[in-house]
Structures are given as C-alpha cells and as structure tokens.
Nucleic acid binder design. Structure first.
Length: 336
DNA sequence: AAGATCCTCAACCGCCTTAGT
DNA sequence: GACTAAGGCGGTTGAGGATCT
C-alpha cells in the first residue's frame, strides 16, 4: 500500500532507471519543484511525488557531493550527533552536499561500529561500562576524543562583521550553545551580546564550572558567563548567567540535561527563533532521555586567552563556537 | 567455483507537522 | 476547530555487490 499521495494511480517502485532520472531532471530544470505532487505528471513518470522528491534530493540534485566521507566530515558528524542525536536532517545541514540519508547510512554502517569498537555508547557518546564494552583493539579506545573537536560553518554576518578569515581546519573547536541574555525575550543573542562573551573570554579568566548543582560560584564576578558541560566528553552545552536580582542562575536552556520542572519552565519561555515549540521541548526531552540525570562534569579552562567565539548557523539551534589553537585535550582538564 | 554471509545504500514506509480550506 | 493534502523526517528494508568459507 503506497502513500496516500499516490494511492489513486498506478506507480512504479524500486530503483530508478537512467531514463526516469533524465525525465525528472529535465522536468525540474524546466518547471522547478515547487509542487512535488505535480512533478510526476509534468515529467511523464509513473512515480509518486514523494518518490520524485527523494530521488532528486538524495541523488539528482546538482550540488551533491559524491564519494566517501572525509575524516573532517566524519568528525563533524560525530560532534553534531553528540549534541543533536539522530537528527540526520539537522546534522546534514552542517555538511554541504551531503543528504540526511547519506549521513544516516554512514552513521549506521560505519561510525556506530567504530564507536562501539572503542567502547563508546553511540547514543550518548559516553564510555560504556567495561561489562558492556566490546573493544577489539584497546589501543583505539577514545581515538576520536583525542582529536580536537571539529569545525562548523560560521554565521556569515559574524564573519563579515569581524573580518574572519577562513577557518583553519586544524584549529580546535568546542561547541557551545549560544548565551541567552537574562531577563529578555531576545533569542538568539545579538552580535553585541555574543561579543560580550568574546570579550569575557579574552580576559584570561580561569573558568570553572560545577554544573552538578548549577549554583553560582563564588569565583565569578558579575559579568561572568559560566560554560556548562553536558554529558558529552568534549562538547559543552551552554551558559548560565548569574541573576543577581533574584540571587540565582539564569539558564540559557541549552543542551544540558534538565529535570522535569525545568522542562515545564522551558515551556513558559519564548520559543527561540527558528524553533517550533515542539522542537524546543524536544531539545530538553532529548537530553533527559539521553542522560537520565545530570552527568555534567566539572570543567576547568586553565587559560582562555587564546579563545575566540563565533556562531554557527543552525536552523534548529544556532550554537556558539569557541575555538582556539590549543590542543584542546592538553589544555582542558576534565574531572568526572 | 559456489554457496553463505556480510555490508552498503537507495528507496520505501509510516508518522508528524504545516498550510490551506 | 476539523479535515485534508503535501512536505519532511527518521526508521527500516531489501537488492545487489563484496567477502568469506
């Protein structure tokens, strides 16, 4: 039984022939694809609109990149997956020329196995208990995590405003959720606010976080931003702002694991631009499901002088990027 | 050489969301 | 608000090629 869009007519299924491809390409080049349900008739194809759409998106689109994934692409997939989970379409948006289907297949056939072989849970990216590990080669354990986190695309506005040169892929990157200004409805933060974070990071402050209790640390002065690490091993997940008026922390609602009351609170906050309410709540649910509880680690940055901050474009959640020329794992101390 | 098994990946299925009425 | 059509997405399937025995 086919999809309702094509149940009325007799449709062909299975692999596409070169002749069908040709018809589809010709049709889209002539008429575009504003209405997929009209494409089969226009193209003279015995396919349903959805099938045409899929064929175009996954195979015929001229901007598709062919060939196997590069090491950098693999790195990006792992990093973004750690934050977003199995949201293949979102992950694919960080990989120009790659489709969600391609990323998903690559994950399932390749990356998942590599992670498992290293004793890492592909869902959480955490090291699995020894009893659950199936490590073929102990030398490879945490191979991925000894590499610096990878690169995401930058916000073009930020790039042009700040004369940012093309990124050096050898630089170390750490993903961060964007800071949300406290006591405002503005999200994502303005460039000014992003820059205030930037400035802060260049003050050679020692950063420490204790996300277990999310309490303001006495180490912090009033303009401090506190980066909160998530359950991931390298990736971090947002900022908390000290809210001095109410003597507590203002949470940016980023990637960290949250308990249900927090989830309720999230529902009351404005929906970030580019996110549906459901997506926003999903962000929280996803983390809760993934972690079950807070597994944040204490994090120390010994020296922030080399750090920079930029933003990556993401329709889901425009995440901040912090990068440096340091070898991140040498510089960051992680205390579980 | 041949059958069995594994692996990859294109395509489909079913569900959800959105837009239009 | 209810209904419907269409688009979009993640999970899954299975054909066919590669590898193993």
């Amino acid at each position: 039984m086919g999809h309702h869009c094509c149940s009325k007519q007799k449709v062909k299924r299975g692999l596409w022939s070169p002749e069908e491809d040709e018809k589809l390409v010709k049709c889209i080049n002539t008429h575009g694809h504003s209405c997929w349900s009209a494409v089969p008739k226009l193209a003279g194809l015995q396919r349903c609109g959805k099938s045409c759409r899929l064929r175009w998106i996954n195979y015929l689109r001229p901007d598709l990149k062919r060939g196997s994934f590069s090491a950098q692409e693999e790195r990006i997939i792992i990093d973004v997956h750690r934050i977003l989970g199995n949201r293949w379409a979102q992950i694919a948006k960080h990989l120009p020329g790659r489709t969600d289907n391609e990323v998903k297949n690559f994950w399932n056939s390749c990356i998942k196995k590599k992670l498992l072989a290293q004793g890492l849970d592909p869902k959480t990216h955490n090291l699995m208990p020894p009893s659950q590990q199936n490590i073929k080669n102990a030398c490879n354990v945490n191979q991925f995590y000894q590499q610096p986190p990878s690169v995401f695309s930058m916000n073009s506005q930020f790039r042009s405003d700040n004369n940012v040169t093309p990124m050096d892929i050898n630089q170390s990157f750490i993903t961060l959720a964007p800071p949300h200004p406290p006591n405002t409805n503005i999200y994502p933060p303005s460039l000014d606010q992003a820059m205030s974070t930037f400035n802060y990071q260049n003050q050679n402050h020692v950063w420490t976080t204790n996300a277990q209790n999310s309490e303001p640390s006495s180490d912090f002065t009033r303009q401090s931003l506190i980066p909160i690490s998530s359950s991931s091993m390298i990736g971090s997940s947002g900022f908390d702002f000290p809210d001095h008026e109410n003597n507590n922390m203002w949470d940016d609602g980023g990637m960290e694991a949250l308990v249900s009351p927090r989830q309720e609170e999230m529902k009351q906050t404005p929906v970030p631009q580019g996110l549906t309410q459901q997506e926003k709540v999903c962000e929280v649910q996803l983390e809760e499901e993934r972690d079950g509880h807070h597994q944040d680690m204490d994090t120390s940055f010994s020296d922030c002088s080399n750090f920079d901050l930029e933003f990556m474009e993401s329709p889901l959640m425009p995440c901040g990027l912090m990068y440096s020329n340091m070898n991140s794992m040498d510089q960051l101390a992680w205390d579980a």
